[in-house]
Structure formats: structure tokens, C-alpha cells
Design a protein around this nucleic acid. Structure first.
Lengths: 346, 346
DNA sequence: ATACCTTTTGAAACCCGTTTCAAGATAGTT
DNA sequence: AACTATCTTGAAACGGGTTTCAAAAGGTAT
């Protein structure tokens, strides 16, 4: 039918021969880069459909120095936050005719370096990376494609764009919310402090404590479900009177909930709980999780667009900061929420 | 330091000039494709490190007709099953020096076609796709790279490998488990019946019903959380005496649980619930979800390896079928599980 | 020292779509 | 009719790493 027989194997020179024109003319017909005589155009179109010719993207990419590809480097695909980010980025990219090359570092710094080099050598049009590792500075400087750092921030800014949420403010909002909900004994479960977002969230919490002369109570944790379980057990040993927990992200908040539930501790009656990110999970859980939502869709879209529209204002690199938003659900005691519950149930 | 200054911009010809050898020799040093005089080798290595030369993957790919890339086409990245599959595939690929090009079809058939063409024209080394759409036959035939179809199956087998779970048997196991747990009034929430896996699961359930002379009770649903909520509401209208629900996947099982919970229906005391897949979610939920586990890691690994080792036995295409496994957790009443609970709590 | 074989090496072709550049063709002007 | 301006078109170069092939170099045997 549509000539798929030999299909993709045909080359532009074969098509040209069949249409009795030059390869240049075929190229012009395909890309509309110049006017072509109506007769010849027809012959070319016919030859293309007969052979099922699909131009080789690699050859095109070699010449154009653009693979119409965005490299996406994340610490962990399994983390639902990055999954959702990847999803938005893929959608945005696809809308603009770009593809996504997905790279998972598994939090290994060396991999970040080799992946940046690899993506550059593949003529990727840009890289979106989540890292706060200062060591990659040289690699970012060396590769001459636009780089966007998402979700995190370097101490010293590099020559790349930053797209992230105001995690410091998010930390403050979370702390204040628990206090407003009546918590007297808050414990903050921190994410890894070499990760800028985790550190900023902690600092937000910490500054609220200082402001209100509350004693800081923290636990160290990773962005990981299993670690979250263990840390929560420890937490309950160390702070048996806890009545409010700030978890470093939603995944860990779920760990916390599971441990509390197993021990028969009621949420939010006995302990209130707040997470970060507002990944889809947060709504699936029962009770639904109160959390500081990141505008993941906006972050991903912005990051992708910065690369796609790189021509626009590549002069000075910028920092785009989005606001996190408190989403009150069922793991904290909020008066408004209770009111809302009542109207819904009536 | 390591010559990242001009870095990646250098070409093999520049390196050759600097080392006073031919580009061919540089290539040979880099790839170890032939012996090179020790002197020259040293000069080349020095020139490479001075220029920070990284070979252009696109040029290499053009000649070799291999981009060391696997295309991954999934219906929806947001679906945790595919996320986990992507994660394993990425890991396996990375171990073998391959990259992943991630494509999301959003269940749009046309996109499958263009993405297969696109990946082929990018010299991808193979494609892993989840589809049961017979229309793509021509496209699969036309592209001369190995294709692996995961999770689903075509009515008429095409010339590609199949890697999937025995969904039919899974459906049977789920039905039998609920019956063994004492359910008298089971309703099966079916996934879209044009998707082979959903259909097979239904048929498994159906055959158990026939075998035991139980009346079939089904609802139509999609693999979607929101749709799941609505369908569950309908289900409770239509079958108020239901005491066991088979959900088409874990995500829908969670929808079901949420609706039951909101209505004050106790799980598993009043209604027992089983899902499919055993995505990470299933363990995060409270109560933890009983489900038919797919060996996602094995499926993904096998699929990736089939492409990476395509040289091995590309002669006749094969079908690799894995067994699903019942994982009893907290949404069904299993005696063994109760026993286990008791020992754990004592 | 000569003939012969093996190994190392570089020039050039190759992969294939795009673009440049100049020639050829058409249209328009005087 | 002669000439200029404009458009269409194909040959050839390009991008950059790889491989082929034949020449050059090194080594061995006679």
C-alpha cells in the first residue's frame, strides 16, 4: 500500500534516481526549503510514497548538529516526582517535535559526568538535569549546549538556567501549618542535606522555629520508602511525645504513616503529618496526604521550553522560581478542611 | 585540567593533526580495532587528553548503523507499571552501554506508527513497545530492527519477540483466590477489552466462573484512577451485595478502595479486593493490596536483553511467557495471612 | 643481499541528508 | 530582439568517525 515494502531502507539518492531529479531536489521537496517545479515535485512525492522513504535522522542530525532530542538526567526514575517530571517534559518535547533521552544516575556522580558528555556527543539540543553536585561545573562549561537544572540549585550559579520551587518557603509553610493546626511537638524528617532542595526545606523549618522560639527536632533520612520506615521507628523512640511530623517528601510521609498506623497511632488525631511535592500518590493514599505541592507541570514545561526556545534569550542565564502551595487534605487538622468535609458529606 | 576547555568541539582530524598521525590511527587507538605503534599511541592519547576529545556519537552511528539506543514506546508513562518497566529497561540497557529513547503514545495509535518510523530512522538498535494494535503490522515489517512487544500479545503473531505475563492464568488465580477466601458475590472490573492483557485476565476469571457454575458479574473500566472511582460507584449501585472485587490493575484497585472507604464499607471484612501487577503502590497503600504480581523486573530485563543480544538467535522470533504470582496482603481474608499477622503482632 | 611475508599506516571512500554555488532556464524590460 | 533580473536545479562539498585497500615498513628465511 504505502510502499512499506522496502520502506525505510531507501535513501534519498534512490528516491532521486527514481524521480529523475537530484538528491538536492528531493531534500527541497521534503523540507519545503525552496520552490520546486510542480512536475518534479509530483514525481518526487510519488517516488517517496512508492519507496516508503523516511529520511535518516542520523544523517540529518550530523549535518544540522541537532538531533531534536532533549537529554533528561534524573537521580532516580523510580521516584514518582521525577516520573511525573519526565512525563511533562516528554509531552512538551513531543509537542515541539523533540524526543527524550532518559538517563538515570542512581545518584552516582560519575554517571552525571559521562552522561553529559554522551548527550553532547549525540548532538542533543539540551540537557535537563537534577543535581546539586558542584563537581560537574567543568562538564557543563565544556559542553556547548543549553543546560537546565531542575528542582535544585548550585551554591555558585553556573552558566545554565535554573527551574525550581522555593523549597525554603515551602519548609516555612509546612512548619507554620502544623503550628496553626495546634502541634506542640513537631519533628522534621530531613532529606539528604547535600541535596539543595532538602537543605532549603530544613532551613525554612529551622527559621520558623527560631522565629517562634521553638526547639528544633530533626531526624536524618533519605528520599526512600524503606529508609523512611526505619527512621520513623527511631523517631518514635527518640521523641515519644511527637504530635506533628514534617516529612522530607511524600514518599517518606507514606513511610511515616505506615509505621504510625501499625502502632495504632491515629493520624491526624494523635500525630499530624505533612509531606512535600504532591505527587499523585498523595491523593491515592487513605487518608489523603496534606502536602506542599510543587507545580511539577509548570516546572517541567518551563525546563523543556527553555531548551526548545533556546534561541530566544540565550544571552544571560536565568533562575525561574515557582511557589510551592499548601494542599490541606486529611493528615492535618484544619478547620477549613473540616468545614469542607461536612458540606461534602451532607 | 583534563582539557575540557575547548572540549567536545574537537574532531578526530584535529586530534590526528596534533598527534601527527592520520584520523584512522586515532580511531584505531580509541577503539582498539588494530595494533598501533607504542610511540604513536602515546602521542594520540596525549592529544586526546589535551583536546578533551569526545568522539561524535552521531557520526559513528551514521556509519555503524547503530545508535546504541533502544526505543521504548509505552501507552502512558504515568502508569506506574510502565514506569517500573522503563526503570528496569533503562538499568539493563545502561549496563550494556545502551541508551533509552522514551516515547509516550498516550494510547494514540497513529503515534505508535510515527514513533516506530522515527526510531528506525534514528538508527535505534531495537524497539520495545507495549501495544496490541494489529494495525502496526506493516510498520513492524518495514523497519528492519528487532522489535519486542511487552505485556501484550497480537492475535496473529508478528515477526517480533513477545515478552509478557500469563494474564489469563492470572485472572484465574485472582478469581480462585477470592472464592477460596469465601466470596460469594464477586464482581470483575475489566480493563479495556481491546487490550490483550485486560481481555486475557477477564477470560481467566470467566472460565473459572464457568467451571464452578458461578454467574459472571462484570463492569467495564479503563486503566485509570478517575474512571475507576466512577465505575466503582456504579458497581455498588448495580451489585449492592458484592463481597469480592477483582480490579483490572492496582491503580483501579486503589480507586475501588477509596470509594469503599468513603462509604464506610470495610475491606476486607465486608468486601475483599484484589488487583493486578503489584506495582510499588500496592505496598504503600494502607491496607496493603492483595494482588497478582507481574515479574516486572524479569520482563523488562528480558525485553532489553533480546534487543541487546539480537545477534544470538534472530532467526525465529519467540514468545516468552512469565507466570504471575498471587501476593496475599491485607485486602483479602487469607487464613495463612491471619496466622502470620498473629505471630507478627505477638 | 635478495626474495618473501607480516604488520603498521594513511589516503580515500563510505554512511546519507543538507546546503552552497554556479550554471541553466524562465520571465520581464526596453 | 537583446539583455537583465529572477528563479529553478544539480554537482559537489560538508559533517565526523570508520573501514577498506594498497603502500610502506619491519622482519625472517634463504
Amino acid at each position: 500500500m504505502c510502499g512499506l515494502g522496502r520502506g525505510i531502507l531507501a535513501s534519498i539518492r534512490e528516491v532521486a534516481k527514481l524521480a529523475n531529479v537530484s538528491p538536492a531536489t528531493v531534500s527541497r521537496v521534503m523540507n519545503g526549503t525552496a520552490k520546486v517545479d510542480a512536475d518534479k515535485r509530483e514525481r518526487v512525492l510519488k517516488a517517496i510514497s512508492e519507496t516508503g522513504f523516511v529520511p535518516n535522522e542520523v544523517a540529518r542530525s550530523l549535518f544540522k548538529k541537532s538531533a531534536k532530542t532533549i537529554g533528561l538526567i534524573v537521580p532516580s526514575i523510580d521516584n514518582p516526582f521525577f516520573t511525573q517530571l519526565a512525563s511533562v517534559i516528554e509531552r512538551t518535547a513531543d509537542e515541539h517535535g523533540y524526543r527524550i533521552l532518559l538517563c538515570n544516575t542512581g545518584n552516582m556522580v560519575e554517571k552525571e559526568k559521562t552522561m553529559i558528555q554522551m548527550l553532547t556527543s549525540m548532538n542533543a539540543d539540551g540537557i535537563i538535569i537534577t543535581t546539586s553536585n558542584e563537581e560537574i561545573r567543568d562538564y557543563i562549561d565544556a559542553c556547548n549546549i543549553p543546560i537546565v537544572i531542575t528542582d535544585r540549585r548550585m551554591k555558585k550559579l553556573m552558566k545554565c538556567d535554573y527551574v525550581h520551587c522555593d523549597h525554603y518557603e515551602g519548609g516555612k509553610i509546612a512548619a507554620r501549618h502544623l503550628i496553626e493546626c495546634g502541634c506542640k511537638n513537631i519533628v522534621c524528617i530531613n532529606g539528604p542535606q547535600d541535596v539543595s532542595s532538602a537543605k532549603a526545606r530544613y532551613e525554612g523549618y529551622s527559621d520558623v522555629c527560631k522565629e517562634l522560639h521553638i526547639k528544633e527536632q530533626c531526624m536524618d533520612c533519605d528520599y526512600d520508602f524503606e529508609v523512611g520506615l526505619a527512621v520513623t521507628e527511631e523517631l518514635l523512640e527518640k521523641y515519644p511525645e511527637v504530635d506533628g511530623i514534617i516529612a522530607c517528601n511524600d514518599m517518606v510521609a507514606i513511610s511515616v504513616y505506615k509505621v504510625l498506623h501499625k502502632r495504632g497511632i491515629k493520624v491526624p488525631e494523635q500525630v499530624q503529618l505533612i509531606g512535600f511535592d504532591d505527587v499523585q500518590l498523595a491523593r491515592l493514599l487513605t487518608p489523603e496526604l496534606t502536602t506542599i505541592a510543587q507545580p511539577i507541570d509548570e516546572i517541567g514545561k518551563k525546563a523543556a521550553e527553555l531548551i526548545i526556545n533556546k534561541g530566544e534569550c540565550n544571552a544571560d542565564k536565568q533562575e525561574y522560581i515557582f511557589k510551592g502551595q499548601l494542599v490541606v487534605r486529611e493528615t492535618t487538622n484544619n478547620k477549613k478542611e473540616e468545614l469542607h468535609e461536612k458540606t461534602r458529606n451532607s
